[in-house]
């Protein structure tokens, strides 16, 4: 490696790094306003922690802007990329907190979504208590498939799972969730 090479590489790196990102601020603001609430809901629901969701949401967008986001491939690709960043941040957070892999964590060890307006929301919709008894992976799959409307390929890209396995995993999670929702509905009716 010659000094000329070193200097050339440094100049290229500088030019690339200092160059404006492909998305300008106005476009980012519009994209953020269209997507941030959905990403926050996903983070809050899967993590069970609204404050953590606030932090991870901000970090997700900062990383999105810092990375080579697929802006030229359209908003759907960017949205999927953003969800993938959010999912990775959730996974990293969970690894720092617990040595157990996400898939092996028992439901009872997971936090219940309790903060801010969530009590009111959960009591209205029944989702909170049912989701609190699901594993993080099940929460992810159900939320992405049915709240966000992602197809199996998109879910695989976001979660890192293999596409063929999504169908069976979703089936099991859906059946469990439906059973919990029905139990919760019956319990509320008895209380009433």
């Amino acid at each position: 490696m010659t000094w000329d090479n070193v200097i050339t590489q440094a100049n290229v790196a500088t030019a690339e790094a200092i160059a404006e990102p492909p998305m300008d601020e106005e476009a980012f603001t519009a994209f953020y306003e269209r997507t941030a609430r959905q990403v926050w809901a996903y983070l809050a629901r899967v993590s069970g922690n609204a404050t953590l969701a606030d932090d991870l949401l901000q970090e997700s967008y900062v990383r999105f802007l810092g990375a080579a986001a697929p802006w030229r491939h359209g908003e759907a690709a960017c949205r999927s990329y953003l969800f993938r960043i959010a999912t990775n941040l959730l996974r990293d957070h969970w690894r720092r907190q617990h040595p157990t892999p996400l898939e092996d964590v028992p439901e009872t060890a997971l936090p219940v979504f309790t903060s801010r307006d969530s009590d009111r929301i959960d009591s209205q919709s029944l989702v909170g208590p049912a989701m609190a008894r699901m594993k993080p992976r099940e929460r992810q799959l159900l939320w992405l498939a049915y709240a966000e409307g992602c197809n199996h390929r998109e879910i695989a890209a976001i979660t890192g799972l293999k596409t063929p396995s999504i169908r069976l995993l979703l089936f099991r999670a859906r059946r469990k969730m439906a059973r919990l929702l029905r139990q919760r509905t019956l319990a509320l009716r008895k209380q009433a």
Partner: peptide, 30 residues
């Protein structure tokens, strides 16, 4: 139907309760 409808409704409700940071601050941090 039960799960999908419940989660779709929940998504709308949760999304409304989000407290978002200013996009300008995130842009600046990036």
């Amino acid at each position: 139907v039960l799960v999908a409808q419940t989660l779709r409704q929940a998504r709308t409700e949760y999304a409304q309760s989000a407290r978002l940071a200013s996009p300008g601050i995130l842009w600046w941090r990036a």
